[in-house]
Design a binder for these strands. Sequence first.
DNA 1: GTATACAGGTCTCATTTAGAGACCTTCTTT
DNA 2: AAAGAAGGTCTCTAAATGAGACCTGTATAC
Lengths: 129, 129
Amino acid sequence: MQRVSDGKLNQWKAEGFNPANCPVRQVLDHVSAKWPVLVLMELETGPRRFNELLRALPDISKRMLTQSLRDLERDGIVRRKVFDTKPPSVSYSLTDLGEGFLPHLLALVDWAEGSMQNILTARKEFDLR
Amino acid sequence: MQRVSDGKLNQWKAEGFNPANCPVRQVLDHVSAKWPVLVLMELETGPRRFNELLRALPDISKRMLTQSLRDLERDGIVRRKVFDTKPPSVSYSLTDLGEGFLPHLLALVDWAEGSMQNILTARKEFDLR
DNA sequence: GTATACAGGTCTCATTTAGAGACCTTCTTT
DNA sequence: AAAGAAGGTCTCTAAATGAGACCTGTATAC
């Protein structure tokens, strides 16, 4: 039996879990950081080439795009496919795992969008104190 | 009328939106970064004092805890309450806004937990290539 | 009374990470 | 022959993070 109101963190701890090297944290870091979020949202509607992503995300650098894509690829969330056109072109798309994740991400984004007014109000109050 | 399969990012762009200074992004940065996630998970089960949080999150520094709490407070997600005991003690808890957010966060964490096996497998494959 | 402890921070400095942008390679078009 | 495109990598600088010393005010211990 398990108490229901313990909170996830406490459950983990009860199982001898150490937040310091938590694998879930690593995944969330990859998936919820600034750039990966935007990359995933762009891939929502279908495969994209490297330079398409660059153009779609105007303020990302090649370096960070490469790194975000590599992390997502390594975690099995994004698939990288090379076509030997000349010059070779590369296509990135969501895997099944990635497709399964997207709804959660979009739910978060929707929440943020819907709460924006409250948040902006809260910030104003906080700042003039 | 709005096409449904456009993707959120494209919808935003159609509305003249510029990802560069997107307010949603800022909120997500505060809410989904490494430490804030853990702070929020700890607050899931009720108010906590500053030093309680420090002890609960063994590898966080005071500096980062303070900063995470300030950001969350400023965004109206966490409430800070000072009691004038001596020495004064400070209690942090979720606001209604924060309570509304938590389910989404936990959904993400559950997904990560449930997908961990797939992810670890994907990583292994990636690494030996 | 002096010394030590605790609450909740801030400040400084060393280390990591991110960002800007030059450069690379292979083929194609002009 | 020169320039351009694709998909990156490399270098250098700037910003964020982490470790930990220090601060302020009361309380308790010696």
